[in-house]
Write a protein that binds this DNA or RNA. Sequence first.
DNA 1: GTCTATAGCTTGATAGAC
DNA 2: GTCTATCAAGCTATAGAC
Lengths: 210, 210
Amino acid sequence: MKRDPTPVSTKDRILDAAEALFADAGYDGVSLRQITSAAGVELALANYHFGPKSELFVAVVRRRAEEINRERMALLAALPDPPTVEGLVAAFARPFMEKSFRGGPGWKSYARLVAQIANSQRWTEAIMRTQFDPVAEAFIKGVKKALPGANLKDLYWGFHFMLGAMTMTFAETGRIDVLSKGRCKSSALDKIYARLVPFLAAGFRRLAEG
Amino acid sequence: MKRDPTPVSTKDRILDAAEALFADAGYDGVSLRQITSAAGVELALANYHFGPKSELFVAVVRRRAEEINRERMALLAALPDPPTVEGLVAAFARPFMEKSFRGGPGWKSYARLVAQIANSQRWTEAIMRTQFDPVAEAFIKGVKKALPGANLKDLYWGFHFMLGAMTMTFAETGRIDVLSKGRCKSSALDKIYARLVPFLAAGFRRLAEG
DNA sequence: GTCTATAGCTTGATAGAC
DNA sequence: GTCTATCAAGCTATAGAC
């Protein structure tokens, strides 16, 4: 019988601390000393468990990406055949929003990490291609069925625009709060969902019209 | 009579080098030594001309932002009254795309910088609020006239989605090239323009329908 | 305005005891 | 698996000569 119902291993303590700090300051804005200090472990343990700093960063992302990917794939697979564009966009957006809303602060950090990764060229190979592209391809496959008359290039571009809108929105930078003088709240993800899905679905439909 | 038609001052040499390096590696991923070395000037001159590193970063962004802002404002002001949504989105997108296409490599670097800034919380106060919000407000004002029946909150969110799509697109990360197996090219900004504007305009219209 | 030199500190990574 | 101690290199910023 375990004494602690949720014993947090050293590895997980490092991952949690790294996640929060990387999300706030970026890969180069955080030192391994800051991370291990926040995790309450010795500096040398970061290298022992994860190797170089870059591998730690990849491990931080992979932990959440695998969970999101599973849910997105399940939702995409559960859609009717042919699916609707709204259903596809929702299947892509919903797991992220649900977790960000109810999954704890780690998921908020992850959202900010994804925004950094998706907007730089640095992690294209090590993260985007291996972690993100498989789900992207499943989405494209679905939207091809939803809009059978559309040009394939249009659908790729539509996916790209969608990704840009979603990553910036999920990152909750607070910019729209300031710009709208408090009318809109970055953190009101349920209200955003009701706008994000129709906005993007309408964009896809317009592209499909040619 | 000037001997060199384009004498590049030390200040501009530093700005140019900083711009290119910051765009590739981010604020913390570049040292002042790398910047001054690439600029062919001494380390101490960076501090002499710009003060601390953070001020240099802001100066890099301001140089281009002021030019883009002038053009965007002029295009927005030249639209018919009431404007169309397509006209508004085009007035916002076109200056960036034109410069990225024909303005030289500095503008490509600037686009990648903007993507970093817009997706983080770090520069919200020092850059976003002072450099970017005035044009954003002019855009919102225009779209209110173009879609008079729309809810104001919907328009702010539409602007936010637009910003996410544009910044990631202009950053030209190359991700869509890989994902689409070469079918789409990040650098083909003229072909993107023909898709970006209708996609976003349709999204705004859909939000306005309620 | 430009240069050299350097202060004072932080970095990632590892060797070796336990 | 965890700890201490440390290395070699890098960092921003500045003082002071020219």
